[in-house]
Amino acid sequence: MIISVASGKGGTGKTTVAVSFALAARYCQFIDYDVEAPNADIFLKPDIKNIKKVSIKQPYFLTDTGNDFSKCAEFCHYNAIAVIGSEVIFYPELCHGCGGCLLVGPEGAVREKDVVVGEVAKGFTTPGIDFLKGNLIPGSMRTTTLQNELEKMLNKSGLVIIDAPPGNSCSMVMSVKNSDYCILVTEPTPYGFNDLLISMEVLEGLKVPYGVIINRDGVGDSAIEDYCTERNIRVHLKIPNDIEIAKIYSQGGTLLDYDSSYGEKFGIILKVIERISIGEADNHN
């Protein structure tokens, strides 16, 4: 079973929640899909055993062959190649590594080399959490290349907890689309509410069942809870607003360090989600 943890708005507590699930489950695969800002390792403290570089192929042009490369520039949909007379200017930041220039260019005169865009790290957290994260190199825009790599390593035979990136576009969808259930973490402010509604729309489009966890309960108003009650959307948990939680979090501590009963609470939610996914329980309040 794959459970993803997402939120439209950033900083609502996705990682806090995802980590709590993993600690409550004890045995699972945990994947940090937020490759632009992966932070789950700060809390799960895995022993990283294996780091694999992830690269894309980018072209270089053998201009001293006297060939005409203008077809390459014409083909490139990303404007990464400019050809002025016999000169070729290549802009690596714009190149997606599609290999098109190699196909259309003069035979043998366009070559490719590997360019590292990030890494995938694998490790273990005792007792039984199989940890995986993607980490994008600052300056690279190949977010989806890394997420594709993570997708290949999904272990669908057991429980998988996915920590998704914030937002509601491509990289968020990549992280939640394979899940059996998605937990949307939100906070009771107009910003949290606005972004939650968009996330719900995304999940409904993907036909991924979801429920809500409200973090920092008490800081704002009850608009989100009222909305969920009205629409019969399950609110699995409300985590109170407490500066102690923020302080523990700031040092790399978890919700279970704040109050060990959260282990049991998240264990119960996991059971509920399991029952929902096998059709034994309804997914509403």
Partner: peptide, 18 residues
């Protein structure tokens, strides 16, 4: 037309002007 380009607008425009 490069105004609508995702990236490399200047590169595309530069080649057009050239």
């Amino acid at each position: 037309a490069s105004r609508q380009a995702m990236g490399g607008a200047g590169i595309q425009a530069g080649q057009l002007i050239a």
